[in-house]
């Protein structure tokens, strides 16, 4: 079963939920940290990494002995990553989406490719948890290919927990799209509410089964609760604001280590999700 933890708004507690769920399940779990722009699940799960791989994307390299400057490569490039100006072919690697258009369209077969590193994949373990994350290099703007690379390691025979990036744009959709269930984490504030509605629109559009977890449930107002009732969205769990949880988090200590009784709550959450996926 694949469970994604997502949210419209950042900082609502995606990682908190994902790690505590993974640590409560203990066995046969695969944790994929797809928040590749700032992965932080490893701080809490504390895996031992035993494999590190560079991840690159192909960018065009022009052979000027073959190129006749016809300009077809530039015409097909939606991002102007390759531009033919008079007797010059300029390649801008930072703009390239590696779509292959330019090297496929070139009539002279003048374009080959080389890999440009955009990040790393790290694979590790802690007890029964297989841990994989992607780390996008600072300055890179395209995260979906690296998210795909993390997900290529997915083992559906295990309980897969995906820690998604925040928001509702391409990286999030890439992270969650094959999930059996999406947990949307929110907080009962105007910002949390606004971004929850966007996230609900997104998962409904993709057609995914989902539910909501309200973190810091006792702050803010009741708008999120009322909305979920109105829209018939299940509230799977509520976690009250607790300074001790925040302090533990800041030291890299998960809730289930601070309050072992929370383990049962997360196991119940898992069983609830399992039931909803089965139904």
């Amino acid at each position: 079963m694949i469970i994604s933890i997502a949210s419209g708004k950042g900082g609502t507690g995606k990682t908190t939920l994902a790690i505590n769920l993974a640590l409560s399940l203990e066995k046969n779990v695969q944790y994929l940290d797809c928040d590749v722009e700032e992965p932080n699940g490893h701080i809490f799960v504390k895996p031992t990494f035993d494999e590190k791989k560079s991840f690159g994307m192909p960018i065009p390299v022009v052979d000027f002995d073959k190129c006749d400057y016809c300009g077809k490569c530039g015409e097909i490039c939606e991002y102007n990553a390759i531009v033919v100006i008079k007797q010059n072919v300029l390649v801008f690697p930072d703009l390239c989406h590696s779509c292959a258009g330019c090297w496929l369209v070139c009539p002279q077969k003048a374009i080959s490719t080389k890999d440009k590193e955009v990040g790393q994949l790290e694979l590790g373990n802690r007890n029964g948890i297989e841990f994989i994350h992607g780390k996008l290099n600072v300055g890179e703007s395209l995260s979906p290919p690296l998210i795909r690379a993390v997900k290529e390691k997915m083992d559906p025979t295990k309980t897969v927990i995906i820690d998604s990036p925040p928001g509702t744009s391409c990286p999030v959709i890439e992270a969650i799209k094959e999930s059996d269930f999406v947990v949307l984490v929110t907080e009962p504030t105007p910002f949390g509410f606004n971004d929850l509605k966007l996230a609900v629109e997104m998962v409904r559009k993709i057609g995914l089964n989902f539910g909501v977890i309200i973190n810091r449930a006792d702050v803010g107002n009741r708008d999120v609760h009322d909305y979920c009732t109105r829209e018939n969205i299940p509230i799977l769990m509520e976690i009250n604001n607790d300074r001790k949880i925040a302090e533990a988090y800041s030291r890299g200590v998960p809730i289930v280590e601070l309050y072992p009784e929370y383990r049962d709550k997360f196991l119940a959450l898992y069983q609830d999700i399992e039931r909803r996926v089965g139904a």
Binding site: Y79, N80, A81, V84, F92
Partner: peptide, 18 residues
């Protein structure tokens, strides 16, 4: 023509004026 380009408007504009 690159007024609304997805990216790389600068190089495309340079191509246009050239």
């Amino acid at each position: 023509p690159s007024f609304g380009a997805a990216s790389g408007a600068g190089p495309a504009a340079a191509r246009e004026i050239s």
